[in-house]
Simulated assay, not measured.
Amino acid sequence: MISPPAIALGAGVVKRPTRLADGRELIYYDDPGTTLGIERAVDARVLDPRPETATMRLDVLTGDWISVAAARQNRAFLPPAELDPLAPQTPTNPSEIPSRYDVAVFENRSPSFGPALADATDDAPAAIDPPQGLDDLAVYGLGRTRTSVGRTEVVCFSPEHEGSFGTQTVTRARTVIEAWADRTAALSALPGIEQVFPFENRGREIGVTLGHPHGQIYAYPYVTPRTQRLLTAITRTGDDLFDRILDVERGSERVVLTGEHWTAFVPFAARWPLEVHLVPHRHAADFAETTTEERDELAGLYLRLLRGVDALYDTPTPYIAAWHQAPVRIGRAGARLHLELTSPRRAADKLKYLAGSEAAMGAWIGDIPPEQAAERLRAAIEGVSL
């Protein structure tokens, strides 16, 4: 057993950093009033060396960088409960987390980015051919490659085998939010990181390979294509774009949930049958810039939203909960932290599949009027309790 250093965060959350057997970072985030002790088990597994960092290739038709991470082919796929790799280790389950935990964050064993970084740190080697900044990445050319530096982390919301963010308590949700803020700040400071993206994939229909309640955080070596389009829109319209969006949406019939610091709404031009945005009223570029009061309110508000989404039908709804954050070095005055939750579910037994127009051309056709979707979701949320 070891006693990792205890670092006090906001809301009574305690951070305890340690290491896995192959050197990957593992961080326990203890709930306020946790029943866990200060000691944690040592990861005594004998593990293979970590895979080589993947390589990015430039698509000259779009300017997108594609990370080719072949090691991900070997990741776990829907294992039984007794072999859950995100559950606490037992004598018969050599999982990724040695001890019982409240919330745990660790480096992915099969990463899309990293472990190498643009420069060497105590935790990671320097890549031989890292991206040389945003200007370098913007240069077009056939056959261009760069090392996929960065970090890919797993965020376990609970030690239990089944569930999602929405099944957690308000206290646990608040611990996860504190972990998101802490990891956003830490990852943003790593060499070569340009954007940090926390998200949760929920449901087999989305492609989830583990039923354990968890999300991920990607730290990219570039600004993602979606965010580049957002920055272009902000350049055209002004840094107050999100303020103006909130003014319009809060005066519409598309609002589904609102508080003192946050508002959730179905956007005016929703693409998906179920699409909800959750936006802070005050400008914050990322989770690290949110206040204690904003995080406190978000814990309960976000749970109500997710439980409302699940209350729409008799079975849990698949979704992607994507927390968009501003890039690390550019666009921070206009790009605001916000959630974009999307689901392909268009009826109890029907999914929207991206076929020719959407998948090939990026030309979307909506199935459900946003106002109608908002009305149904408001009704579902009204019946939700925490």
Score class of each variant (00 low, 15 high):
P4T: 11
A11C: 13
R16M: 10
P17S: 12
L20G: 01
L20V: 10
G23K: 14
I27C: 09
Y28C: 13
D30G: 01
D30W: 10
D31Y: 12
G33P: 05
T35P: 13
L36Y: 03
L36I: 00
G37R: 04
E39P: 05
A41F: 11
V46E: 14
D48S: 15
D59W: 10
G63Y: 10
W65C: 11
Q73D: 14
N74Q: 13
R75D: 04
L78F: 10
L86I: 02
P91D: 00
N93C: 05
N93T: 05
E96F: 02
R100A: 12
D102I: 11
V103I: 02
E107G: 11
R109A: 12
R109E: 09
F113A: 05
G114A: 06
D119V: 15
D122E: 11
G133C: 07
V139G: 05
G141E: 02
V154M: 11
V154C: 07
V154T: 00
V155N: 02
E160L: 15
E160D: 14
G166Y: 00
T167P: 01
Q168H: 06
Q168P: 02
Q168I: 12
Q168K: 12
W180S: 04
R183E: 01
T184W: 06
A186N: 06
A186E: 06
S188E: 03
A189Q: 07
G192P: 07
G192A: 10
E194P: 08
V196D: 03
F199I: 00
E200Q: 11
N201V: 12
G207L: 07
H214D: 01
G215Y: 05
Q216E: 10
I217R: 09
V223A: 10
R226Q: 14
T227N: 09
L230W: 03
A233M: 13
R236D: 06
G238H: 05
D240A: 02
L241N: 03
V248K: 11
G251E: 06
V255F: 04
V255Q: 04
V256Q: 04
V256D: 03
T258H: 14
E260D: 14
W262D: 04
P267M: 02
A270K: 07
R271Y: 00
R271G: 09
P273C: 06
L274D: 02
E275Q: 12
E275G: 08
A285Q: 05
T292H: 14
E297P: 02
A299M: 08
Y313Q: 10
D314L: 15
T315I: 10
T317V: 09
P318C: 05
Y319E: 00
H324F: 13
R336S: 04
L337M: 06
H338F: 01
S343A: 04
S343G: 02
S343Y: 06
R345N: 01
R346S: 14
A347L: 06
A348W: 01
A348Y: 01
L351Y: 03
Y353M: 15
A355L: 04
G362D: 01
G362Y: 00
A363I: 12
G366R: 13
G366C: 08
I368H: 08
A374C: 07
R378N: 05
A379R: 15
A379T: 12
A379C: 15
A380M: 06
I381D: 03
G383S: 07
V384M: 06
S385F: 15
S385L: 08
